[in-house]
Design a protein around this nucleic acid. Structure first.
Lengths: 192, 192
DNA sequence: CGACAATGTTTACACTGTAAATATTGGGGA
DNA sequence: TCCCCAATATTTACAGTGTAAACATTGTCG
């Protein structure tokens, strides 16, 4: 009974997302296809249409899960300084652990960008990064201006670093033994 | 005679790259296809095989041209401070003017990453950014250490900013009237 | 218990990249 | 000059892709 094939799979949505993520990290973004996912799950290739609509819908679901996991990786309960370090290290670690998914998460025209679930998870990540950019001391102006600029600056920095690392644009010559905490400007000010 | 169709196109390589870039910025990265390029050029759909080998070869050619243009946009003959400003503004302007091409330029598995021509152009861009990161004053350590970290930091920063802007991850609320020069930390130190 | 919505399958179609065989052209040596 | 050959472009073919429409199965709720 347990392994018996039923006409209704039950939770095909989560099975599809899992299969898609396996294919994504195993063979790369270009090799991801609905039909391979369907074969992997053991279901006809048009089954996902009921759950995701189309390819963009499936990718949006994967990416939404990705942002959720990214938020988990960045979360920290310690001091502000510890929060910042955890967020940055978690961000880069996530990108390195899921490079193909990370690329898809910042793709321009493959996702349903106005998907409500996706927007919620993206916002959750931004909130964590916003908290991590408090009291950076990078900018002048009022406290609000400092916060606004600091948020944009910190996210730009960590995202650019993560993508350039995962895309292989940094040669090892410059990077051996360095983490993002060593590269971030003026972070050492309150580091110890 | 001038518009007469010849069996040998003449300079089909540059014609294909131009057609591909048109399609790229018009319909997005997902809509780029060899067959559409061929139709646009007015040639059979297997013609590019002799020049580019495959899709990755064509994309590599487009991206190589992109890096060349990016270097042009960043280049500046003025003072070090002017060079830095020109490089950063040119970088962001290029990304905003060619968002789909810019995304492709940092794609992971669609390009021939060890292509000699591509590596030359990528390196040229890095050289300009390295010059622009001189005397940033962001890091401590020896001059060499400062330079190495500053190069990685500045490229991370500008690339992350450019991609997050073109990907629409920044809401207008935080960004109205601000340029990257306003966001860069500690750049105002020598800005005036 | 029966209708109905949810879910999955079958079939079909247009489109894509790639390979192999073929055709055309132009240029460089006899 | 002429002919051969390499470069270049075409034709044909094939496997793979996403998507739509029609159909089949299942669970649920009145």
């Amino acid at each position: 009974m347990t392994t018996q094939h039923k006409y209704h799979h039950g939770n095909l949505k989560v099975a599809f997302v899992a299969a898609a993520r396996d294919l994504l990290e195993q063979d790369g973004l270009a090799a991801l296809s609905l039909r391979k996912c369907a074969e992997k799950v053991g279901v006809s290739h048009t089954a996902p249409k009921n759950h995701f609509g189309n390819m963009a819908g499936l990718m949006t679901a994967i990416v939404t899960q990705g942002y959720s996991e990214l938020a988990e990786r960045m979360a920290c309960d310690g001091s502000p300084c510890q929060q910042r370090e955890a967020a940055l290290l978690g961000y880069v670690a996530f990108a390195q652990a899921n490079p193909a998914l990370y690329e898809l998460m910042f793709s321009r025209d493959r996702l349903v960008n106005d998907d409500p679930d996706l927007m919620v998870q993206v916002r959750a990540c931004f909130v964590i990064l916003a908290a991590a950019s408090k009291d950076l001391g990078w900018h002048s102006g009022t406290a609000d201006e400092q916060d606004g600029k600091g948020q944009v600056a910190l996210w730009s920095f960590v995202h650019g670093y993560a993508q350039l690392v995962t895309a292989g644009r940094f040669k090892k010559d410059n990077m051996q033994g360095l983490s993002i905490l060593d590269i971030l400007p003026a972070l050492s000010k309150d580091a110890d």
